Structure formats: C-alpha cells, structure tokens
Simulated scan of single mutants.
Amino acid sequence: MPRTIDQQIAEVENRVQRLKTKKRTKDTRRKIIVGATVIPAAFEDKNLARQLVTLLETSLTRAVDIQDAEPLLNDLRKFIGDNQV
C-alpha cells in the first residue's frame, strides 16, 4: 500500500529531527574533548590559564553558566596567583 503524502512528510521530518540530534551530539562531544584537553593544559601553563580565565570572564553571560564555571575560574586564579577569588 503506497504511503500518503502526509506519511512521507512525517518520515522526512523524523529523519531531519534525527539528523539534528546527531549534530547536537557531535557538537557536545567536540566541546567535551576541547574542555578535557584545554583545562588540564591550563593548569600546566600560567599564560594559558590567564587566557582561559579572561576568555571565560568575557564570554560567559548567562548566570547559570557563570555560576557553574566559578569553581574552575577560582582554581585557575589560584594557580596563576590572581587574588580576585
């Protein structure tokens, strides 16, 4: 039995949704990989730590993001000897 146009549209919309989910998953994984690489490196290199603190301080705008990043920022500030904790 042939599928109706509405069924075909629904199938295509489902496929698009699955692709969007796959894209978000890959993007999230990429962010995790970068964070897992950069954060430990920042605790080995004070210049990188300073750059990361500056980047986060200037880039984070949502209160929840700032709150979640604050412990990391405090640890980085301690590492570089910045008393803005």
Rank of each mutant, 00 (worst) to 15 (best):
M1S: 15
R3P: 10
R3Y: 07
R3A: 10
T4V: 01
I5G: 12
Q7T: 10
Q8T: 10
I9N: 12
A10T: 13
E11D: 12
V12D: 07
E13S: 04
E13G: 07
E13V: 11
Q17I: 13
L19Q: 08
K20T: 14
K20C: 05
K23R: 13
K23S: 13
R24S: 12
T25S: 07
T25H: 14
D27W: 11
R29F: 10
R30K: 13
R30H: 13
K31Y: 12
A36V: 10
T37E: 12
T37P: 06
V38H: 02
V38N: 04
V38F: 03
P40K: 04
A42T: 04
A42V: 04
A42P: 06
F43K: 08
F43N: 06
F43E: 01
E44S: 12
D45F: 01
K46T: 05
N47S: 10
R50E: 09
L52E: 08
V53R: 08
T54S: 14
T54Q: 10
L55P: 00
L55R: 10
E57D: 13
T58C: 08
S59H: 02
L60V: 06
L60D: 00
L60M: 01
T61Y: 07
R62P: 04
R62W: 06
A63H: 14
A63Q: 15
V64P: 09
D65A: 12
D65Y: 11
I66D: 03
A69P: 04
E70F: 07
P71D: 11
L73K: 05
L73R: 05
L76W: 04
R77S: 04
R77V: 10
R77I: 08
K78F: 14
K78T: 15
K78W: 13
F79Y: 11
F79D: 02
F79R: 07
I80V: 11
I80Q: 06
G81T: 03
G81D: 00
D82E: 07
N83S: 06
N83C: 02
